[in-house]
Write a protein that binds this DNA or RNA. Structure first.
Lengths: 105, 105
DNA sequence: ACGAATCGTAAGCGATGACTTACGGTAAGT
DNA sequence: ACTTACCGTAAGTCATCGCTTACGATTCGT
C-alpha cells in the first residue's frame, strides 16, 4: 500500500487514538478497545484500515491478535512529507527572491 | 490550526493534486484549476480547506488570489510523524528484545 | 463608465464512511 | 465436552464530504 492510504487512515481521529495507544508497544484488540468511546467491532474495522494502509502489523497469538505499529509504513509517509517540505522551502525561497527583485525595480 | 486538520486536508486526492501543482511555486486559482478534472468552484473550496489547515497561504493581488504552500504547516505534520516514527522504532526494538528474551527461556 | 474577468459563497445532490447490533468461528478454561 | 473469552464480518443507519450549478462582489481593460 502506498502513502495515500496511510494519509487517509490517519485522517480519522479514532484511528489516531489507536495509533497513540500503540506508541508504547503492541497490544491485543481488547486492550486497545478498552476505555475507548466506540464499540469493539468499530475498533476492529479501524484496525483493518490501518493494517491495509501498512501502518500496523498483526501477529495472531493463540486466542488473541496482537497489533503493533509498522515502522515502514510510517517511514513512507515521512518520505512523502520530506520531499514536500523540500519543494515548499525551495519554492518559498524562489518566490521571496523574485519579489525582492521586483521590489528593487 | 493543528496537524490534525493538515492530515485531513491531505487525505483528499484532489487536494494532493493541488499541492503538487504548487510545488514549483505560487499560482492563482485559475492556473491551479486549469486542466484539473473538477470545476473551478470545487478548487476554491479545496483551497479554503487547505488554507484553514495551514498548508497554504494566500496573497490577494489585484484581481487574482495567489496561493502558495506554507512551509510551517508542512513542518507541523513532519514533526508529528517524526515523534510517531521515534516511538514506533523504540516500541519495535523493545518488542523484539522481549521476544528474544522469551525465546531463550 | 461599461463589459469582461477572477474568485468566493450558497444550495442541493449523490456517494463515501464511521458506527451500531447481530452473528459465526476459533482458542482457552474447567 | 461445554462454556467462556476473543475477534472478525455482515447488514443497516446516519452524518459528512466532494461535486455541480447559480449567484454576487471586486478588479481590470477600453
Amino acid at each position: 500500500m502506498a502513502y495515500q492510504d496511510a494519509i487517509a487512515a490517519l485522517a480519522d481521529p479514532t484511528r489516531r487514538v489507536i495509533i497513540d495507544r500503540l506508541r508504547t508497544g503492541p497490544l491485543p484488540v481488547s486492550a486497545i478497545a478498552d476505555g475507548m468511546g466506540v464499540s469493539r467491532p468499530a475498533v476492529s474495522q479501524h484496525l483493518k484500515v490501518l493494517s491495509d494502509a501498512g501502518l500496523l502489523s498483526v501477529t495472531p497469538t493463540g486466542n488473541r491478535r496482537v497489533y503493533a505499529i509498522a515502522p515502514e509504513g510510517v517511514d513512507e509517509l515521512r518520505r512523502y512529507l520530506d520531499t514536500l517540505w523540500d519543494d515548499a522551502l525551495a519554492a518559498f525561497a524562489r518566490a521571496a527572491q523574485e519579489k525582492a527583485k521586483g521590489q528593487s525595480t
